[in-house]
Simulated scan of single mutants.
Amino acid sequence: MSNLDYSLDNITVEWINDIKYMSPSPHPNHGIVYSELFNSFYNYLKGKNFKVFPHKTDLCLSDPNEPIKINDLKKPIVPDLFVVCDKKFELVGNNIVSIPDYICEIVSPSSIKMDNEIKRDLYLSKGVKEYWIVNYLDNSIKVYFDNKETTFSFDDNVKVNIFDDLTICLKDIELFEI
Rank of each mutant, 00 (worst) to 15 (best):
S125F: 13
D58N: 05
D101V: 08
E105A: 10
K69R: 12
N135S: 10
N10T: 09
F176L: 11
R120Q: 11
L59M: 06
E105H: 09
N71S: 14
Y6Q: 09
Y102I: 06
T57L: 11
E130I: 01
I162C: 03
N65W: 06
D164I: 01
I32R: 14
K171I: 13
G47K: 09
K148P: 02
L81A: 05
E174N: 15
H27P: 12
N157I: 04
D5S: 13
F176K: 15
I106M: 07
S2H: 09
S140Q: 11
Y34W: 14
K46G: 09
Y44W: 06
I103D: 07
I77C: 10
M22T: 10
H55N: 07
D63P: 06
S125G: 06
D115E: 11
N95T: 04
S153N: 10
D18H: 13
S111G: 03
P24W: 11
K119P: 04
V107Y: 00
P100M: 09
N3E: 13
I168M: 02
E66I: 03
I32F: 15
S153V: 01
N95L: 00
V107S: 02
N3I: 03
L45Q: 10
S40W: 05
D164N: 13
P24Q: 15
Y123L: 06
L170T: 08
I16A: 10
L4G: 01
C104P: 01
D138P: 14
I77E: 10
V143T: 05
L124M: 14
N49S: 08
V92K: 01
K88H: 03
I16M: 12
D58A: 05
D165K: 10
I99E: 08
D9C: 05
S40K: 06
E14H: 03
F176R: 10
K48M: 05
N157F: 07
P64T: 12
N43S: 14
P76Q: 00
L4A: 12
Y44I: 04
L73Q: 09
K126V: 10
N71C: 08
V83M: 00
L61G: 00
E14K: 01
L170R: 03
E130V: 01
D86K: 01
K113L: 08
F53S: 01
F163V: 02
T57N: 12
N3L: 15
S2P: 15
